[in-house]
Write a protein that binds this DNA or RNA. Sequence first.
RNA 1: GCGCCCGUAGCUCAGUUGGAUAGAGCGUCGGUUUCCUAAACCGCAGGUCACCCGUUCAAUUCGGGUCGGGGACACCA
Length: 605
Amino acid sequence: MLQCPVKNLYIFNGLERFMPSDLVRTTVVDALQDALQRAHERGLLTLRSMPLLTLDLPKRAEWGDLASTVAMNLASSERRAPLEVAQIILDNMSKREAIFDRVEIAKPGFLNMTVKPKLWLAVLGEIESSGAAYGRCDLGQGRKVLIEFVSANPTGPLHVGHGRGAAVGQALARLLIAAGYHVVQEYYINDAGRQMKLLGASVYVRYQERMGRAASLPEDGYHGEYINDVAGLVADRLGDALLTLPAPEAESRCRDLAYAELLEAIQKDLKEFGIVFDSWYSEAGQSATGVVDQVLNELRTRALVFEEDGALWFRSSVYGDEKDRVVRKREGDYTYLAADIAYHRDKLQRGYDLLIDVWGADHHGYIPRMQAVVQAYGHPADRLRVVLVQMVHLLRGGAKVEMSKRAGEFVTMREVLSEVGADAAKFFFLMRRSDTPLDFDLELAKRRSADNPVYYVQYAHARLASVFRVAQERGIVVPKTGEADLSLLADADSLALVRKLSAYPSVLEGSAAALEPHRVTFYLQELAGLIHTYYFKHRVLPTVSAEESTEEEPAFGSEAAAQCRNHREPLTPAVTAARLVLMGQVRQVLENGLSLLGISAPDRM
RNA sequence: GCGCCCGUAGCUCAGUUGGAUAGAGCGUCGGUUUCCUAAACCGCAGGUCACCCGUUCAAUUCGGGUCGGGGACACCA
């Protein structure tokens, strides 16, 4: 469905194949690839059709750490039993001993592989040398992306829904940067048209009331309390000067002041939320240039815009939209679409290879017509990808917090921010796929306990940071990866962590390709879970009392050691050194992941 | 009525572009702290993956249909 540019292509028998990006997977895929090639050269396999060489993570430990289904996928085109094909692949692996501890064939035709710990552990060195760059990939190959998000009318403060859009947009932007795109983040200011007029009129009404003159809000006017505040500001600045002006002029003065004030408030909210835009694009600025007319005329000469019933229409139906759409009403006003056509044409002309729009999910019906615009300018529809963001249901201790923008009473982003903080808000906004509704419990987000996933992940980072702090205090040297004996990390718990670390690049890549930042959030929760367990079970630094102790203790990794917790586990300086290396890289990946989501990675909590 | 999203444990949701005995968190209940942060850890229980049909060696995943929930429909933005 979602089409995305794909990296790491390699050609095999004339077919393009996708390859995973992390170290171990790459190695294993190469080995399988090589085995297939050799079997082919020996006439054992025809390889008329090549299946994807993807690797699965087996669900059970006895199935190894990676599994391949190639044999089953190949079986029908090879006209052989899957088990036979698996055997052939196995027999033709040339570097088997160097890479695997075990390769086994299982029931229907799985190839279950256990990779040598040494190979897994090599990822630690990779993380160390890459640091903050670990996990980056070249999916984008430098392609230019414009991601537009929030884009709220400057007619009021941002509400929670905008907050979710902001968190998603920012995370996407960072994700795409990490995936090798050149990214520009833009806010489209809807500062033209009817809504702005209504804003001016509403403020003027409140202004008059302040001045003791009776007035009533226009239908569809803005009711919010903030309108009153803005009216107060107008009164402070201009006194009663507006009372003597003709209404249209007074309203327009109110509009201009309100606009400046509200836009500034929006920018302030976003800044506080840690969201920074590269570019602010004004709709009013665009329409002032006359470009909308120009664009419509241009489309008219191509018969993509036509006149009917006194209105002007965009022939979006030829590009798959269900019907044509009005761009200029009979009364002569442009519709929102007209401005949007010009805006998206402008984006395309600025030379972006990919446009991403983050919209509220209620605009989903708008997608076909915008993709029609993109096609009208000669680009494939998927040059524009729309990420939909669903509603946020605010809860407080399980009970719904009612919101109604109509009545002017809605929960603002600012309120949520000041109540739970930017980190917690972002984490919650990114905890679900963006196109599913989100329950956001304010009480839960504030709670400093295990059931709050934000703190769970941040605490994992803080704990590790603390280990290094204590190590430094005690004068324990933190070695470089190359200086430690990594073979001491060959136990199941350490390897589980290392395998998780090595999956990080694939998670990022998948997340970026699918435009789904929530995958990173899930990954971080899983990694945090592993490290909390590890921390509880295994000691990294020697206990102060045990530093000279030579007492008999259960053998490392034995049942007894696992039962009776970490302090009985033998801990030599070499083990401490190796574990410090491991902890250091886990900390790094936690930091990388959190920073991708725009969330801080605290050193202490 | 036409598109869109969704239906997985009591609740909220993941499920790696079709794989083996379907996972996590919360909630319930029970346990763990002389020692690197208990904001943590461990254990128990909980499922016809809404339903039917199809494609396949293999379907929670793909296709079709049914039922149910949400959102949407404009010469509003």
